[in-house]
């Protein structure tokens, strides 16, 4: 079908161009620095890299839906060790712990829309709407 040909060519060319751009050193590699390294993570790095999302998802359902507290896997626990000194947070700059990998892997970070990403954060306690 001739009329599909042109868009097809354009798409192919675009993907090819995009592929070449990504193949080189254009994209910065994740820069993982653990600044508050004061102990051991809940699992070896290899396992954390592969499974942290499953661990967190499993734990979130246990904590929220069943009320199980005090487990070793905890999002707030992650923050305490992994918040960077620059932002005091696990996000906010390109070398923040969560952001650096997620930007590289192009995976949306959904946790921090609701969870507080800063370590040791205390709510202001201000009265609202005044």
């Amino acid at each position: 079908m001739k009329r599909w040909a042109i868009p097809l060519v354009i798409l192919t060319a675009w993907f090819a161009a995009a592929g070449t751009a990504c193949a080189g050193d254009g994209l910065p590699k994740p820069n993982i620095v653990i600044e508050n390294k004061d102990g051991q993570c809940v699992a070896p790095p290899e396992e954390m890299r592969r499974n942290h999302m499953e661990m967190l998802k499993h734990q979130r359902d246990l904590t929220l839906r069943e009320g199980i507290r005090g487990s070793k896997v905890s999002l707030n626990g992650c923050i305490e060790c992994h918040a960077g000194k620059k932002t005091g947070s696990v996000i906010g700059s390109d070398d923040s712990f969560c952001q650096t990998c997620h930007a590289y892997a192009a995976v949306k970070l959904d946790c921090w829309d609701c969870h507080q990403p800063k370590a040791g954060y205390k709510a202001t306690g201000a009265k609202p709407h005044e």
């Binding site: 707030n76 609701c114 969870h115 507080q116 800063k118 709510a123």
Partner: peptide, 9 residues
């Protein structure tokens, strides 16, 4: 400004 123990978004 969430309280770390009270996620909301």
């Amino acid at each position: 400004e969430q309280n770390p123990e009270v996620p909301r978004g």
